[in-house]
Design a protein around this nucleic acid. Structure first.
Length: 415
DNA sequence: CTCAAACCTGT
DNA sequence: CAGGTTTGA
């Protein structure tokens, strides 16, 4: 009676369970995009195979030269039973949050009791749409790389190796609460924390090999008064309170749909709205704007990006500062927006990715199919930026609006 | 508006 | 100290 334990899918064994999506590696590199610190939910479960939870389902993704292969696990067995009220709410609330029409059918399907998981044509189309939405495949990354490279020699240099680094369009709730965990913290610990968070408070989805996969917790699950103590036990430290308080504040003063509604609000307004939440400062707010709220111009500035600005762009302003001030945030963000344009946040993620320790080996051994580009002296690249004008006039919309809305945590947003 | 210190925990 | 935020001078 004990069912055979399900396993992670592998492309080489059982091609029938895989579906495909035409997509060149220059448009999407799964390994870089999924492991560069945007989402903390994907794991490499086999060589080049990435497994994680997205839109309430468990996926394994892999790719060949011109194709992305995906498999969606169907496990009705674990749903609808064995979850407490908090978790139960997790499923429906999570799905209810989706405003996109393409996700409409999801809630109904979960509630039905189909004995066998037959994948209908409708499911197939729906899931392909989910992927296209999540990876924002309508955005032509190759064209953007061309533009950034034309405007910025240093970017062009990096871009030859780090192609296909693409911004994910994440669920706003998952994105916000994951990034509240990032303060004063490093990626490896954040990954563990987010995993424990989902395991403790998220609805279970399925189990593969020794790993159980859970949905990200709902707002109401996170807002429960018992959550802070629970998360402190799980090693969240002072962030435990931030998570619970932010969830409660959103539900009490804004409502369930508020976060998603910020997608339709201008960047600066959305960012200031987020900053009213405990544990959410400038950097975290920018991350959420960029990675889940469709604000491509948001450039999250952390100490690491500051180092990049100083080292590769000869950014001198704020040298006296010991740490990043609010003003420095604004100035560096404006600097990069001026350089890269409306998708500056996407460009920044490429450089950020290229600077991660775990990807350094790619710089030494580029693609074999591509002949080595001729070495360009790094020193000369920098000279080009020696005299780069850092400050610009008040002509930028973003800047103008920022100075206007100075009252930080007071900002009231009517959505 | 700027600045430093404290905040949890793991390396 | 770490990919930060809050708080009080």
């Amino acid at each position: 009676m004990k069912t055979v334990m399900a396993k992670h899918a592998v492309l080489s064994s059982g091609a029938k369970m895989w579906r495909s999506l035409s997509c060149a590696k220059s448009e999407l590199r799964l390994d870089l995009t999924l492991a560069c610190g945007q989402s903390f939910r994907w794991r490499e479960t086999a060589e080049g195979h990435w497994t994680g939870v997205m839109a309430g389902r468990v996926w394994t993704l892999t790719q060949t030269d011109d194709t992305v292969w995906y498999h969606v696990y169907k496990d009705k067995g674990m749903q609808g039973e064995g979850c407490d009220s908090k978790r139960g709410a997790g499923v429906s609330l999570q799905m209810g949050n989706k405003s996109d029409k393409s996700f409409k059918g999801a809630l109904k399907k979960e509630e039905q009791e189909e004995p066998v998981a037959v994948t209908s044509v409708h499911d197939t189309e729906e899931e392909e749409d989910m992927l296209r939405d999540y990876f924002q495949l309508n955005v032509k990354l190759g064209d953007l790389y061309e533009e950034w490279g034309a405007a910025d020699p240093h970017f062009k240099c990096i871009a030859d190796v780090f192609t296909g680094v693409r911004m994910l369009r994440q669920d706003p709730t998952e994105c916000l609460f994951s990034f509240i965990c990032t303060s004063n913290n490093h990626i490896s610990r954040i990954q563990g924390m987010v995993e424990r968070l989902c395991q403790a408070l998220g609805a279970p989805l399925c189990q593969l090999d020794q790993t159980s996969y859970h949905n990200f917790p709902s707002l109401s699950a996170l807002a429960d008064s018992s959550v802070e103590a629970c998360l402190r036990d799980l090693g969240f430290g002072y962030r435990a309170r931030f998570l619970q308080q932010s969830a409660k504040q959103i539900l009490d003063t804004h409502g369930l749909q508020w976060l998603e509604g910020l997608r339709g609000v201008p960047y600066v307004q959305a960012r200031d709205a987020l900053r009213t939440l405990p544990g959410v400062g400038t950097k975290v707010a920018d991350c959420v704007c960029l990675m889940s709220l469709d604000k491509a111009e948001a450039v999250p500035i952390d100490t690491h990006v500051w180092q990049i600005a100083k080292r590769d762009y000869n950014y001198a302003s704020g040298n006296a500062q010991k740490s990043i001030t609010d003003k420095l945030h604004r100035d560096i963000g404006d600097f990069f927006r001026k350089l890269w344009g409306p998708y500056a946040g996407w460009a920044q993620s490429v450089l950020f990715c290229a600077d991660l320790k775990k990807f350094q080996k790619l710089k030494e051994m580029p693609d074999l199919k591509q002949p080595l580009k001729e070495e360009k002296g790094g020193g000369e690249m920098r000279v080009a930026y020696k005299k780069t004008k850092i400050k610009t006039e008040e002509d930028e919309t973003v800047k103008a609006m920022e100075t206007k809305s100075a009252g930080r945590k007071k900002a009231k947003v009517s959505v």
